[in-house]
Structures are given as C-alpha cells and as structure tokens.
Simulated assay, not measured.
Amino acid sequence: MAPTETPPPPTPTFLKLSYPAPRVLLIRMDRPSALNAMSTAAQWEMDAVWKWFDEEALLSVAVITGTGRAFSAGADLKEWNSSMSSDADPGSRMGNAPAFTPLSRRRGKKPVIAAVNGLAMGGGCEFVVNCDLVVAAADARFALPEVRRGIAAIGGALPRLIRTVGLQRASEFALTGRDATAQEMEMWGVVNKVVPRERVVQEAVRYAEMIARNSPDAIVCTRAGLRQGWEVASVEGAVECTLEREWAELQRGENMLEGLKAFAEKREPRWKGSRL
C-alpha cells in the first residue's frame, strides 16, 4: 500500500510511482521506445498525478526522472503531426489539450526535483526549467529544438529561462535550437548538481529527503515565497503576496507551533501532514 491518505490516480501507460523515502514521491516516465515523449494520454496522466500530489497531506516533495537513455523528448510530435491533418478536429490538436505541458507550466504547491538521466529535449527541457531543483547525469543533454520543427517552446520555458540565465544566453539556446551539456547548464544556473548517470536518482532523492524532514507547511510557504520572487517583478510585491496567503495559513496550522515547541524542548519535531 502507498504511504498516502488517498490512493494515487491510475497511471497505466506512462508513469510509474514509488516512495523511496518518507514523504517523498518518485515519478518515473516510462516510455523508453519513444524517448519518454508524451502523448495526449500521458499528459492527462501527469496532470492527474500532480493534482493528487499537491493535495496529498503525507507527501512533501516529488522527484521525476525518465527511463532508458532519455529524461523526456517532450511532446509526441508524431501524434501532434497527425492531429494537424486537414480532416482532424481543430479542438483535438495536441497543443490545445487542457493538460498540455502539465509540468512545464505547473505552479502547484510542493517542490519537484528533476533527476535528468539523459536527453531532455523540447517539452522535456521545459519540464526541467520549471523544476525547483535539478540533478543531471554527466552525459545528459538539453535542448529546445522547436524552432527546427516549425513550432515554438510555448510551455513556459522562454520567460523562465530569461529569469534564470538572462536574455542573451536564453536567446542563444532557444533561437538556435542547439544542444547544451549538463556542465553548461550547471554553469548557467539551471542545474544544481552534475553526477554520474548511475547516481542521478539517488542524489535527487537525497535532496528530497533533506527537504522532506522539514515542516510540510513551511515547505509550501517557503516555496511560494521563492516562486513569487521569481515570477513577480517587485520583490516587495512578492513578499506581500506570500504574507497574505501562505504565511497567514502557516500561522494557523499546527506545524508552526510544533516546530517552535520542539526547539524549546530540544527535540526533533513531529510534523503533521500539510493542510496548506
């Protein structure tokens, strides 16, 4: 049985879920024959899993990785091409799906760590840019090759890259469509740590465990403050937004009282599930 209050949504075709440590969810994209590219059905699966993860009180952080030699090649371009045929329903086109790019545009409440085991291309690279921490295999490669296919990286990576790496580097990367190495992405600040491929999931889980030891409510509140600072132009505006929402909820929860009490009593805190 999963160590959760509610059962996870069924994920039979694309995702495999496991629990490598307390309060940690490991999501493995498992479509290696297609470089873990996401069909429309796969996008719906991931959308359902992220919604469940954010509401599941006994989980604090997730790690996502791929199977085989790829993290993810992004959207399934063969399916996308078929959906663009002249006799196809325009409303059914992959790019119009409500669950399109469910991680690259995810805001959510809880942190997600990318364990990039191999190729991260297109939407797969957009996933990485929006993750809270990134651990990459030494031989992983990243690219936004959409411009070479007549499309554009519309899943949120472009403005996020600007904030992370700056205009000139983001322009070079996105307008040329070229590959970048894990070491280059680490230098640019997209990747936290580069490790041998066989250690990439282990290292990501290690980070997840460090996060999961903390107050579930404080994790949600802290991440909200970080995200507001990343996405909102005004620093003070971001602070005020977090104070009005997540900080106000944090103060009403039991975990804040428990953390302070445990400190005063010189013991480890006994956290309850997050209700933020």
Rank of each mutant, 00 (worst) to 15 (best):
C221F: 05
A248V: 09
C221Y: 02
D217Y: 00
W230E: 15
A208V: 00
E240C: 00
T242Y: 01
A208I: 02
T242Q: 12
T242E: 12
D217V: 04
W230L: 14
M210Y: 05
E231H: 11
R223Y: 06
V200H: 06
R245S: 14
A238C: 09
M210I: 10
E198C: 06
G229W: 06
A212C: 11
R199W: 01
Y207D: 10
P196F: 00
I211R: 00
R213G: 11
W247Y: 13
V194P: 05
S234R: 04
C241A: 15
V195R: 05
M210D: 15
A208W: 02
S234A: 06
I219L: 08
V220A: 00
L243I: 13
G229M: 13
P196A: 03
Q228C: 11
V205Q: 09
E203H: 05
V201W: 02
G229R: 07
V200P: 02
E246D: 11
G229A: 01
A238E: 04
A238F: 10
E231S: 10
Y207C: 13
P216N: 03
E240P: 02
T222W: 05
A224K: 13
R223L: 14
A248G: 12
R227H: 08
T222H: 06
I219Y: 00
V194Q: 09
A204C: 00
L243P: 07
Y207W: 15
G225Q: 11
R206T: 13
W247L: 15
E236L: 08
G229T: 07
V239I: 15
N214Q: 14
I219W: 02
R206K: 14
R227W: 05
A218V: 08
G237T: 10
Y207K: 07
C241T: 15
P216D: 02
E236F: 08
E198K: 11
R223E: 06
E203T: 15
R245F: 11
T242C: 11
S215M: 04
A238Y: 09
D217I: 02
D217F: 03
C221V: 12
I219A: 01
E244I: 00
A233D: 11
V195S: 03
G237M: 09
V235T: 12
E240H: 07
Q202E: 15
S234C: 08
A208S: 10
A218W: 09
W247K: 09
R197I: 07
S234M: 05
E231K: 07
A204V: 03
V232T: 15
R213Q: 13
S234V: 07
A204K: 00
E203A: 12
V194S: 02
V232Q: 13
A224E: 13
E244Q: 13
S215D: 07
